[in-house]
Amino acid sequence: MSLIRNEQTKLTATYLNGVAIAVFAVGGLAPVFSSLYSGAGPSVFLLVVSVVCFLVSFALHYGARMALRRLEP
């Protein structure tokens, strides 16, 4: 039974890490690059949103790492 639980835990951690990467890429990086290449320049609101997305991404990644601590020997 522990092998099944370990695989489920790894799958959950992988999913959380994938969501973390998506949040970082779409919410953190894409708007900044879009504003830089449009010529308008980044606004304060955009920078705040990017920082929040980065923090959410970090929290999700940390959650994935915590899920992996539940692996059984």
Rank of each mutant, 00 (worst) to 15 (best):
Q8I: 10
S34W: 10
M1R: 06
A20M: 00
R69F: 04
C53A: 09
V56D: 03
R65H: 09
L47N: 10
F54G: 11
T12H: 06
R5H: 14
I21Q: 06
N17R: 07
R5M: 13
M66Y: 05
Y37A: 13
L55V: 15
I4E: 11
G18I: 01
V48E: 07
V52F: 14
C53E: 07
L71K: 04
E7K: 13
P73S: 12
A13K: 01
S50Y: 07
S35P: 02
L55K: 12
T14D: 13
K10F: 10
N6K: 05
R65C: 08
M1E: 14
I21E: 08
P73V: 15
A40V: 06
V48I: 15
V56Y: 01
V23R: 00
V48N: 07
L71C: 09
T9V: 15
F54V: 09
C53Q: 01
P31A: 00
A40P: 06
R65L: 13
F45C: 15
P42Q: 15
L71H: 01
L36S: 02
I4T: 12
V32H: 00
S57I: 02
P31W: 00
L46R: 10
H61Y: 14
G41T: 09
V56H: 03
A40W: 07
V32R: 01
G28F: 01
H61Q: 10
A20H: 01
S35F: 12
S50E: 06
E7R: 14
I4A: 06
T9W: 05
I21T: 11
F33C: 08
S57R: 03
Y15K: 10
F24I: 08
K10A: 13
A30Y: 01
S57K: 02
A59W: 06
L16F: 05
A22N: 00
H61I: 08
V56P: 05
R70D: 07
M1F: 13
E7V: 15
G63R: 04
C53V: 07
